[in-house]
Amino acid sequence: MIKHHPHAELLQAHALGELPLSMSIAVAAHCALCQECQTQIAKLTEQAAKLVFVSSGDDEVQHNASNEIDVVDNAPWQQMLSNIMALPESTMSEPYIESSVTVSHRNTRYQIPRVFRQHIAQPWQQIGKVSRMRFDMDEKNTRASLLHIEALGEIPQHTHKGFELTLLLSGEFSDSTGHYVAGDFIILDGNTQHSPITQTGCLCYTVLDAPLYFTKGISKLLNPIGELIY
C-alpha cells in the first residue's frame, strides 16, 4: 500500500502546469499508480479550470455577447477563427491507449506509467548492481533518471545539496526510515542521509535537484516536504 504521496501544494502546482518537466513526470507517474492522488488531481484541475474560465459574478450571457462582438469586429481574430475552421477533423479516432510502457533491463521487463514513453530510449549505465538511465530534460542542474538496483543491491550513503525525489516504480527498498513499495513518492532534503537497500530489486525514477528551482518559488513547496514525510 502506498503511504508516501506528493504534498498537497505539489499536486496543486502540478494541476496548474507550473512544475518543471522532471517533477511533472514524477507527479504524473505517481498519480498513474495512486488512485487517490489521481482523483485529487482531477478535482484540482476542475477548480483551476473554473478559476481561469468562469468569470466571477457578472452576467455570463452578456459577457459572452460582448466578446462575440469583439471577435466579429476584430480582423486578426476573425482571420484566426476562419483559419482554424478550414482545418479538417483530426483523423485520430477514439484513442485506445495503454496505460503503461515497457522498459527492459538485464532480462527483466518492467511496465511503467505511460508518461515515460518518450524518455526511455536512453542507454543504461551500470556500476555493480546499480544502473542508471539518465533522461535528457535540459533543466540545468536537475538530473532525472531511472535507477535500477538488483536484488540485495545497495546505494552507498549519500547526501545532496538540494532535494532528492525517489518514486518507486517497481519492487521494494528500505532505508533507516522505513520500507517502501511501488508508487511511494519520497522527497528527501539535503540534510537527510540515507542508504537504501533492496532485497528483491527495484526500479525507481529519481530527480536530483536544481538549486535554481529553490530560488524560484517552488522552494516554498519543497522545503517543508522533508518534515512532512518523515
Binding site: 484541475t45 476542475e46 479550470a49 474560465f53 485520430m92 477514439e94
Partner: peptide, 21 residues
C-alpha cells in the same frame, strides 16, 4: 478544440476542464 472535438467526453468533466487541459 476544432479538430478533436469528437474526443470530448461529457462524462469525464466539463467543457471548461477539457479546454483548460
Amino acid at each position: 478544440v476544432w479538430t478533436k472535438s469528437h474526443l470530448y467526453n461529457a462524462d469525464k468533466g466539463s467543457v471548461a476542464t477539457w479546454v483548460f487541459t
